[in-house]
Amino acid sequence: MRNPGGYAVITSPEQARVNFDKFRCDEISAGITEVDTFTCFHCAKVMHVKTKAPMDEVGSMCRNCMKMVCPRCASGPCVPFLKKLELEEKRFQALRSYGLA
């Protein structure tokens, strides 16, 4: 895929089946199998991308932030994961300043 968010390498001495992301099961051949991945911009889930698979099979592109998202987040609102993280940290810092965390 274009601009992958990572890659996976599976080394198998023989043909085997691999379940990726609890979404799909693929047959891999003996030897080394390489798979591109992307990390969902909304929930940070890592998705393995099947070569030449249509985008609908591996997720979607958010039309707001223009980033790849996983099937779980495809129909949800656009809340980037890093924004969620920042909010969580701000809440923690506030609670801590009150002596509550």
Partner: peptide
């Protein structure tokens, strides 16, 4: 839900490497 998941044959080994900006992040909380 899990952040990363893979089910592999016992004989296989697996490695995942993130590109910068696509890591699995936990907050400073």
């Amino acid at each position: 839900a899990d952040l990363w998941s893979v089910a592999i044959n016992q004989r296989a080994s697996y490695r995942w490497v993130a590109a910068p900006g696509s890591e699995l992040t936990y907050p400073a909380v």
